[in-house]
Computed example of a mutant assay.
Amino acid sequence: MQIQILTVGKIKEKYLKMGIDEYTKRLGPFARVEIREVKDEKTPDGASAAEEEQIQAKETARLKALLKPGTYIIALDIKGKNLSSPEFASQLDKLATTGQSHITFLIGGSLGLSRELLKMADLRLSFSAMTFPHQLFRLILLEQIYRAYKINRGEPYHK
């Protein structure tokens, strides 16, 4: 399985980098994980809707440039479908068994993902109705992917 995580913005916090590195390493036996970051645009305080659309358009173009043809796209979206950890594990297992060996997760910047990217997604997934910093969310996503593999293998990590 090849897992690509395309995300807006860079990680600056050392503790987040360490956690991301740890879960990327743990996923090594199960999948090839690639994390690609694109530059985020600064959003001025009080930005108009038009300014926000322009910012999202720039970030969208950068993300789209990294999408591989034929990949299964999962967009992380607060309004997406909620799955439990076992349901998420089942979804990943189903993709693998039906020949979808390349999955791309999209994580937007502070303004989220554009409507264009959300429409391109094969699945819009929400981990919570809460808002998380997009930098922290990378770590949460990697942990949940790792948990999914452990669930699918019947290993005790999930408990």
Rank of each mutant, 00 (worst) to 15 (best):
K94I: 02
S128W: 08
G99W: 11
L67C: 04
Q56S: 06
L111W: 07
E116I: 06
I55Y: 03
M120R: 11
K10W: 04
I107V: 14
K81A: 04
K12D: 02
L66K: 13
E41H: 06
A57N: 13
L118C: 15
V38G: 07
L66R: 10
D77M: 04
L63Y: 02
A47K: 04
R147G: 01
Y146W: 07
V33E: 00
K25Y: 09
L106M: 03
D40Y: 04
K64Q: 13
K17F: 06
L67A: 05
M130E: 08
S85P: 10
E87S: 15
T71P: 00
L63G: 01
I55E: 00
H158R: 13
Y15I: 10
G109S: 13
L76N: 12
K150V: 02
K10N: 09
K42P: 13
E59A: 05
K64Y: 00
V38Q: 08
R147V: 02
G19N: 13
Y146I: 05
R153K: 14
P29G: 06
Y149I: 01
M130A: 10
A96M: 08
A50M: 09
I3N: 02
I11K: 06
T43A: 10
E22S: 03
P44G: 01
Q91L: 12
E34T: 14
I145G: 05
F127N: 15
P133R: 14
E22R: 07
F137K: 14
L76H: 04
Y146C: 09
R36Q: 15
A89G: 14
R115T: 11
R36V: 02
G9S: 14
S90T: 12
S128H: 12
K64V: 01
D93T: 12
A121N: 04
T131N: 13
L67Y: 07
Q56V: 06
S126M: 12
K42F: 15
T71A: 15
E34C: 06
Y15V: 08
G109Q: 05
T131D: 08
E34G: 03
R153D: 11
G154C: 12
T71V: 13
V33Y: 00
S110F: 01
G80T: 11
K119C: 01
N152P: 00
K64E: 13
Q4T: 10
P44V: 04
R147K: 08
E53Y: 04
R124L: 12
I78C: 03
K81L: 14
L92A: 10
E34P: 00
A75L: 09
T104F: 00
I74K: 02
Q54Y: 08
F132D: 07
I74A: 01
K39T: 08
L83C: 08
Y15L: 07
S84Y: 08
Q100K: 14
K159P: 02
E143K: 14
Q54C: 03
E53L: 05
R36S: 13
P86V: 15
F132I: 14
G19Q: 03
P69S: 11
T24H: 15
